[in-house]
Amino acid sequence: MLKQILVSNAAGAQLVLRQRQQSCRDYADGRDEGSSMTIGLDDIVDDVLRRQPATFRTFLDYKMRCIGCPIARFHTIGEACRAHHVEPTAFLAALRAVEADQASD
C-alpha cells in the first residue's frame, strides 16, 4: 500500500514539474504575457493568477484563499477546487468569464 502511494505521489510530482517547466518556457518565450489561452482545470493556480490578475476576485468570491499560498505554485485549478470543496465547472466558468472580459478590453 505504501509503495503504491509513493509511486502515485512520484507520478503526480513529475506531472507538476513538467507543467511548471512548460510554464517557465512559455514565460521565457513571451507566450505567457497577454496569452489568449483558455483557463482549464489542469492549469496551475499561480500561473492563472499571474497571467490573469483580474481572477483574484473570483478566487476570493469562491472562498478560495489561494492568493499568496505556497501550494498555489503546485496545485492545479482542479486540485484547488477539490481541496476547497468548490464545484469545478462553476468555478471554471467564472474564471473563463473574467478571462473573456479581460480579452475584450
Rank of each mutant, 00 (worst) to 15 (best):
A54D: 07
A54V: 06
A54P: 03
T55V: 11
T55P: 01
T55G: 11
T55D: 00
F56C: 15
F56N: 14
F56K: 13
R57H: 14
R57K: 15
R57G: 12
R57M: 12
T58W: 04
T58M: 08
T58C: 13
T58P: 01
T58E: 05
T58N: 04
T58H: 02
F59L: 05
F59H: 07
L60K: 15
L60D: 01
D61R: 15
D61V: 12
D61L: 14
Y62R: 07
Y62F: 15
K63G: 12
K63S: 12
K63L: 15
K63E: 13
K63N: 10
K63C: 15
K63V: 09
M64R: 08
M64H: 03
M64L: 05
M64Q: 05
M64F: 10
R65C: 13
R65A: 15
R65L: 10
R65T: 14
C66W: 00
C66E: 13
C66D: 04
C66S: 09
C66G: 14
C66R: 09
I67L: 15
I67N: 13
I67V: 15
G68K: 06
G68N: 06
G68Y: 07
G68L: 10
C69F: 11
C69Q: 05
P70D: 03
P70R: 07
P70L: 09
P70E: 06
P70Q: 12
I71L: 14
I71K: 10
I71C: 07
I71Y: 12
A72R: 01
R73F: 11
R73L: 12
R73P: 06
R73C: 09
F74K: 04
F74C: 06
F74G: 07
F74V: 14
F74E: 11
H75W: 13
H75F: 11
H75G: 06
T76H: 04
T76S: 14
T76I: 08
T76W: 06
T76A: 05
T76N: 06
T76C: 03
I77R: 02
I77A: 05
G78Q: 09
G78T: 08
G78H: 05
G78M: 07
G78W: 06
G78C: 06
E79K: 04
E79N: 02
E79P: 03
E79F: 01
A80P: 01
C81F: 01
R82F: 05
R82P: 00
R82I: 11
A83D: 01
A83R: 01
A83N: 02
H84C: 13
H84T: 09
H84S: 10
H84P: 05
H84K: 03
H84N: 11
H85G: 04
H85W: 00
V86Y: 00
V86F: 02
V86K: 02
V86I: 05
E87N: 03
E87T: 01
E87F: 02
E87C: 01
E87P: 03
E87K: 02
P88L: 07
P88G: 03
P88W: 01
